[in-house]
Write a protein that binds this DNA or RNA. Structure first.
Lengths: 193, 193
DNA sequence: CAACCCATGTAATGGGTTACATGATTAC
DNA sequence: GTAATCATGTAACCCATTACATGGGTTG
């Protein structure tokens, strides 16, 4: 039982939760899981092929109103691999990439004005993310787990909006041409308390 | 003025904030920026070479207590590229990869018990991240911006710990062998409200 | 009859990590 | 003397995205 790749578990999980064609998986990946785990078509389709060859899943051609598609099912081996992964306590992959934070990290020499401009950009970015997730909500239908992860995303971005709001409020008290590093030191580098 | 790559801006920012040797950049990348923007040695050193060739930075050999190292400075061209990026309102790259959330997304058919076990793993993961960031704090020294991004990380993980705590508290009220999807629907899929 | 969605795939490219490789200096 | 830190780099590999390619069905 060697470990499978991450995209493999995505595919197994998709099948287990009723997304049984490659296209359905692709849709769900774009709609529902993208905001915490991106998966592209270039991963899904090759994965379906190799998981079939290795006996984790089986595909059946189905004609669905004239259109042809392949509908996959988990084999016992696939079910077991999924269960093992789902209940594993092994350290799960966690990563963040936030170009905005990178800019904040380098902001030492900016003016308070310039720093506040960047913070505003970030605040609005999280605000837009919230609006985007709200739009996705109806598409989650009755999948309770989809709503759960959506809720997490919404709450997380709301946290960020508030965090940047509070930081901005503290910076608003400082002279606009002060050095950002000095201003932050002055407000104790702990504006969010 | 074609746009530079992300690792290029990392290097420019590092120089501007006083990390002037490849090794110093590598250290800061591991210590301070890793939790929101990973950069490896395999990116830093080739980048130093190509940014030198393209006239964004200049390197000077320096002997520093017998040891040799190369210390870089920004050229006017490099300074301009950095300023442009720092003040740009263009959509900044933002990405999250959370394998734990992926498992939650597929948890529909698990038991409440199994779901709570996964939530516990995630809660502890964020707790450990907080401890790790606390350990890094002394190394930020007097860099106000380093403390700022550290603060964001700490607050973000604290938010997550609380979020999972609240979710777990609600699930604790449900029978342990209930289907996770049903339990979540029952608590209205909005446990964090 | 055009645009869009369903449906499936491949190839080129780009980005990033890991492992490897080397060697000097300093602290214990 | 030996382990850790300073210091710099390269090559192989893995992973993922993008663009391309194809074609049938549905809706306005």
């Amino acid at each position: 039982m060697t470990e499978l790749s991450k995209p493999a578990y995505v595919v197994l999980g998709m099948i287990a939760t009723g997304r049984r064609s490659g296209y359905a998986m692709s849709r769900t990946a774009k709609d529902a899981t993208r905001h915490f785990w991106a998966t592209s078509d270039g991963q899904i389709y090759p994965q379906l092929k190799s998981l079939s060859e290795d006996g984790y899943i089986t595909g059946e051609r189905e004609s669905h109103g004239g259109r042809e598609r392949v509908v996959y099912s988990l084999t016992p081996k696939g079910r077991e691999a999924l269960n093992e992964w789902m209940s594993s306590a092994a350290k799960a992959h966690f990563e963040m990439r936030d170009e905005g934070l990178l800019k904040l990290f380098f902001a030492e020499e900016l003016s308070v004005d310039q720093l506040r401009a960047q913070i505003d950009i970030m605040r609005r970015r999280h605000q837009r993310a919230i609006e985007h997730l709200e739009d996705l909500r109806p598409r989650a239908g009755d999948m309770a787990c989809a709503h759960l992860t959506l809720r997490y995303g919404l709450d997380l971005h709301a946290f960020s909006v508030e965090w940047y709001d509070r930081l901005d409020a503290e910076l608003a008290e400082r002279p606009p041409d002060e050095r950002a590093g000095d201003a932050l030191r002055a407000i104790d580098a702990a504006p969010v308390g």
